[in-house]
């Protein structure tokens, strides 16, 4: 299997999603760039729901809309994330497994990710891939494009950008809410470039 590399943009959107709804379980999908061949490059993320995350109708619709979007932008859905409000077990939820199966029909290396709140507002990221018929924890699949992505998130959170993130639920409330988060995207990339740069200059000293 090819390596999975997460862009800061994708991870940041996912974590801001949790920050925006700290008291609710959230879910969403990861998009990979089909132009990149040597690795599975997760270029973006679509935050989906923060209420009724185990119900089908709106979820199905969201998946179709995102698929249409992917097709037009040469992307593909490569993974699904959820951050359960209650961590019941170390394995993906029933719903996540079903979503994972669906994703595997189109992309056999599809993965699931648990995004879990920890003390000090940090996150634990737990990726799962399907091996010999079972979803199992696979620590090595997680590679960051920018190792400082957590600093980027902290920086954005400090400035309250988390509240500006819109998920598909928000879009259903009002179609003007942009689930692709295009305007937030520029801010994320700018802050991420800064944290990366700062880190390099510290190392240089």
């Amino acid at each position: 299997m090819r390596d999975i590399v997460f862009s800061s943009l994708a991870l940041t959107k996912m974590m801001l999603h949790s920050y925006k709804y700290p008291h609710m379980p959230v879910n969403g999908v990861f998009l990979m760039d089909c132009d990149v061949e040597k690795e599975i490059y997760i270029s973006d993320c679509v935050p989906l729901f923060h209420q009724g995350i185990s119900l089908k109708p709106m979820f199905q619709l969201a998946m179709r809309t995102v698929e249409d979007y992917c097709e037009r932008n040469n992307l593909a859905i490569a993974g699904y994330y959820e951050s359960p409000d209650i961590v019941k077990s170390a394995s993906p939820s029933l719903f996540a497994e079903k979503v994972g199966e669906k994703l595997r029909e189109h992309f056999k290396d599809a993965f699931l990710l648990h995004n879990i709140w920890q003390e000090n507002s940090k996150f634990a990221l737990r990726p799962f891939i399907k091996e010999s018929g079972k979803w199992s924890y696979s620590a090595n699949t997680l590679n960051f494009e920018n190792e400082n992505v957590f600093k980027t998130v902290a920086e954005l959170q400090k400035k309250n950008f988390g509240l500006e993130l819109q998920d598909y639920d928000c879009y259903l409330d009002n179609f003007t809410n942009d689930w692709t988060n295009r305007s937030l995207q520029e801010v994320i990339m700018l802050v991420d470039a800064q944290t990366e740069h700062r880190d390099q200059s510290i190392k240089a000293k």
């Binding site: 619709l61 809309t65 995102v66 249409d68 979007y69 879009y171 179609f175 003007t176 942009d178 692709t180």
Partner: peptide, 16 residues
């Protein structure tokens, strides 16, 4: 055109 991309996607799905 990009700013309304998310709305176009939604409309496309419903039309389909």
């Amino acid at each position: 055109p990009k700013m309304t991309d998310h709305i176009d996607s939604g409309l496309e799905t419903v039309c389909a």
